[in-house]
Amino acid sequence: MERSIRSYSPKDTHKIGRRIGTKAQSGDVLLLVGDLGAGKTTLTQGILWGLGGTEYARSPTFVLVNEYPARLTLYHMDLYRLNSIEEIEDLGLDDYLYGNDLCVVEWADKAPGYFPVNHAVVQLEVIDDQTRRVTVSSETAHLDRLVMAIAGGADE
């Protein structure tokens, strides 16, 4: 299943994230794809608030993994600085990816095939300065609720 929606501002992107966070369940894995500045961290921030978290998500580019307490613990990971599957394995991400919380992974497309088969992909495409196309897709029916979550219009 796949759905797209337009975001006309960071505020919209945040709202889309909140909807996804509200629907997230134990063990979900979300892979974020999008250029620098497309809104990956903003979306993650929204997901955290949708989970009932109160902190501000920061980019995990340099720390590799951030952990935020919420209804499900949110593990926010970034593979940008990693150069091989071995480096990813040495981080022990398996404990999180096959655990009982929620993982949001940036630059996951660096390591196709590494992630659990049951994942959803969120793609953020830059249309212009402010506008983004947000597409959520999943090949497993179990995660259709995350794809459905973005429906309803960004200006809802």
């Binding site: 794809v33 091989s84 599957i85 071995e86 196709p112 095939g113 590494y114 088969v117």
Partner: peptide, 19 residues
């Protein structure tokens, strides 16, 4: 002892996969 799934083993062979 660290075990890879067959899926990850084949992903490792395709590395690096630039975006």
């Amino acid at each position: 002892i660290y075990l890879r799934s067959s899926q990850v083993a084949s992903a490792a062979r395709r590395w690096p996969n630039t975006k």
